[in-house]
């Protein structure tokens, strides 16, 4: 069963098309990664899916409700958390929970139960009276997620939830996202961290308002790059990269520490081309491996292709 169905969703601001005929589907309980450069149209898409922004054309069903026709019903059934911790810093933990619970119309036993749950997942039991501003970043973020889903929505949108958080808190946060997914809550998450994208069941990549890739991380790695990719460990990494980029059999290059990833193109014949090239210059090659592309390779490849 699909919990989000997006069909030809388009948003224009004057003559500028921010989101261009985007279509995709998200299954219930899935963790769905939404990737793209800044300004690619991610936020605009999320705003439309949350019922805040009216689409210029096309539509999306979120939890079964049309974002174009029934934005209020959509809002009742979703949770939303952005990279800015949208809690009131000058309220206590409990006051924040009470306020958002109240706004979602929670009352009585149900409210008490949900409040306990939020305190539990944020590790704040017994600390209800603390001022939110005094909490460490990771905890604040968990509290923000808790209050965002206090009304038990079927779907939750997380807009770069882990930006600016240390790696351990980030890992813990992803455990929390997994537990939401285990409760059959659909999670749509945008992120800049590609290793986080690996945690997602499915991913889409959007560029200049257009959807340019979709699938699981495995599918993305195999379906979108057909040409061989090599990892070269060598001296003078920067010089080597500059040299490689000039060759007609090379598509893109990128540096990973002491290694260079070389995405070849149709003109590429075999590895010896690289060896010969390096021998004719002063670059000392330690190792050349043919590799399975990382998500980063895939995205750089797709985005560079888009520019051309």
């Amino acid at each position: 069963m699909n919990s989000i169905v997006v069909k030809n969703l388009t948003k224009k601001f004057g003559s500028f098309t921010a989101v261009d005929e985007v279509s995709f589907e998200v299954k219930r309980g899935e963790i769905f990664g939404f990737l793209g450069a800044n300004g690619a149209g991610k936020s605009t898409t999320i705003k439309m899916l949350c019922g805040i922004l009216e689409p210029t054309s096309g539509d999306a069903l979120v939890g079964g409700f049309s974002v174009a026709k029934e934005p209020d019903k959509v809002k009742q059934n979703i949770g939303y958390m952005s990279q800015r911790f949208s809690l009131y810093n000058d309220l206590t933990v409990e006051e924040n929970i009470d306020f958002f619970g109240g706004i979602y119309g929670l009352e009585g036993n149900l409210f008490e139960e949900r409040k306990k749950w939020v305190l539990h997942i944020a590790n704040l039991e017994g600390k209800e009276k603390l001022l939110t501003s005094s909490l460490p970043g990771g905890i604040k973020q968990r509290l923000a997620l808790g209050t965002a889903v206090i009304h038990k929505p079927q779907i939750v949108f997380l807009d770069e939830p882990t930006s600016g958080v240390d790696p351990i808190s980030r890992r813990n946060f992803w455990d929390l996202i997994n537990s939401l997914s285990a409760e059959n809550i659909t999670v749509l998450v945008t992120t800049h961290y590609l290793e986080e994208a690996e945690y997602c069941n499915n991913i889409i990549l959007i560029d200049a308002g257009k959807l340019i890739a979709e699938g699981s991380s495995k599918q993305l790695k195999t379906n979108y790059i057909k040409v061989p990719i090599f990892e070269i460990e060598c001296s003078n990494v920067v010089e080597a990269m500059e040299l490689l980029e000039k060759q007609d059999f090379v598509g893109e290059t990128s540096i990973f520490g002491n290694n260079i990833h070389v995405i070849t193109n149709e003109k590429f014949k075999d590895e010896s081309q690289i060896h010969n090239l390096c021998k004719s210059s002063s670059i000392n090659v330690k190792r050349i491996n043919k590799i399975i592309p990382t998500l980063e390779d895939v995205f750089i490849h797709l985005l560079e292709k888009g520019k051309k």
Partner: peptide, 13 residues
């Protein structure tokens, strides 16, 4: 400024 307005907008308020 704090972004809480953005949070309020996605609630049914």
């Amino acid at each position: 400024e704090l972004g809480t307005l953005e949070q309020l907008i996605v609630t049914p308020i």
